[in-house]
C-alpha cells in the first residue's frame, strides 16, 4: 500500500525579480514501512519538495496524498526532523518537555510514557532533565528525532538531518535511524545531498536533477535491512550504486534502468 503519493508535483516561487521554478513534474510513491532517500545537488529544490509534502507550502501544480487523502495544510500524522536541530528544539524546555510538547492532547501519564520510550529509543534515557544547550549537536538531533517518534507519525520526513554534525556522529545517527526503523517499522522520506548517505540508508534512492528538480532515476538498494558502516560501505553493491548515483548527479538527466 502506498503511504505517500506524489503526482505531477511542481512549485514556482514568484518574486519581484521574476519567478523561480524549484521543482517540476515530480512523480513518485513511498510505500508503508519504506525508507526512501531523495538525493539531489545543493539548491535543487529538495527542501521545497519536503515542505510541499509536509503541507508547509502549497504547491503550484500537482498533488501530494497521504493514505490516499490529498494533503492540504499540515497533516496530523506527519512529523519532520529539520537540519537545524538547535533552532528546531525549544531551548527553554528540558529535553523531556521538548519531546512532550507536541503531545498536549494526551493525558499527562501517556505523554510521559511516550517521552520515556522515545528518549530510550534514541539512547538518551538519562538526559531528560537537561536543557538542549547542555547536549552536543548529535545528542540534540537525537532529541529532535525522539520528539518526532513520540508523535507517532505515519510518515517521518527528514530534511538533511545529519548535515550539521561531524562525520563520526553522523555515522552513529545513521545507524540509529536504521535501527529505529527496523524496530518501529517507521515510514521515512529523507532528503540529503550526500550520495553515500542516501545509498547507505535507503531502501530506494530517488535521484533529482538540478533545479527545477525532476526525478532522474528510482534506484532500488539491495543491501538488506541490517547494514554496518564498514562492511556495507565496502560492499560491491554499495560501491556500484554510489557510482551510479554520482554519475546521474553529474551527468544530469540520463535514463538508467
Amino acid at each position: 500500500m502506498n503511504m505517500l503519493e506524489v503526482d505531477g508535483l511542481g512549485h514556482t516561487y514568484k518574486g519581484k525579480d521574476g519567478s523561480h521554478t524549484a521543482i517540476d513534474g515530480l512523480d513518485f510513491t513511498v510505500g508503508a514501512g519504506e525508507l526512501v532517500c531523495v538525493v539531489g545537488p545543493s539548491g535543487c529544490g529538495k527542501s521545497t519538495l519536503l515542505r510541499t509534502i509536509a503541507g508547509l507550502i502549497r504547491p503550484s501544480r500537482g498533488t501530494v496524498s497521504l493514505h490516499g487523502t490529498k494533503v492540504d495544510g499540515v497533516p496530523r500524522d506527519l512529523a519532520v526532523v529539520f537540519q537545524d536541530y538547535s533552532r528546531s528544539l525549544f531551548p527553554w524546555l528540558s529535553v523531556t518537555r521538548n519531546v512532550e510538547f507536541p503531545l498536549r492532547s494526551l493525558s499527562r501519564t501517556e505523554r510521559e510514557a511516550r517521552a520515556v520510550e522515545a528518549l530510550a529509543a534514541v539512547g538518551l534515557a538519562a538526559a531528560g532533565k537537561k536543557y538542549p544547550w547542555q547536549l552536543s549537536g548529535g545528542m540534540q538531533q537525537r532529541v529532535a528525532i525522539a520528539r518526532a517518534l513520540a508523535y507517532r507519525p505515519s510518515l517521518l520526513l527528514m530534511d538533511e538531518p545529519f548535515a550539521s554534525v561531524d562525520a563520526q556522529t553522523r555515522f552513529e545517527l545513521e545507524d540509529l535511524l536504521l535501527r529505529i526503523r527496523r524496530e518501529q517499522d517507521t515510514t521515512v522520506l529523507l532528503v540529503t545531498h550526500d550520495i553515500d548517505e542516501s545509498v547507505y540508508l535507503g531502501d530506494r534512492v530517488l535521484v533529482l536533477s538540478k533545479s527545477p528538480a525532476t526525478v532522474v532515476a528510482h534506484l532500488d538498494v539491495p543491501l538488506g535491512p541490517v547494514r554496518d558502516q564498514i562492511g556495507t560501505r565496502a560492499s560491491e553493491d554499495f560501491v556500484e550504486l554510489r557510482a551510479k548515483v554520482a554519475g546521474l548527479l553529474q551527468g544530469g538527466p540520463v535514463s538508467v534502468r
Binding site: 515542505r51 509536509a54 508547509l56 499540515v74 496530523r76 506527519l78 512529523a79 519532520v80 529539520f82 537545524d84 533552532r87 528546531s88 525549544f90 510538547f101 507536541p102 498536549r104 508523535y151
Partner: peptide, 20 residues
C-alpha cells in the same frame, strides 16, 4: 525553523503564543 516546527506539530494558538 521554530515557526515551521510549530506548524508541523500543529500546535494550538495558545501553545504557540505562550509556549513559543
Amino acid at each position: 525553523t521554530k515557526v515551521e516546527t510549530a506548524r508541523v506539530f500543529r500546535l494550538s494558538r495558545t501553545q504557540w503564543t505562550l509556549g513559543v
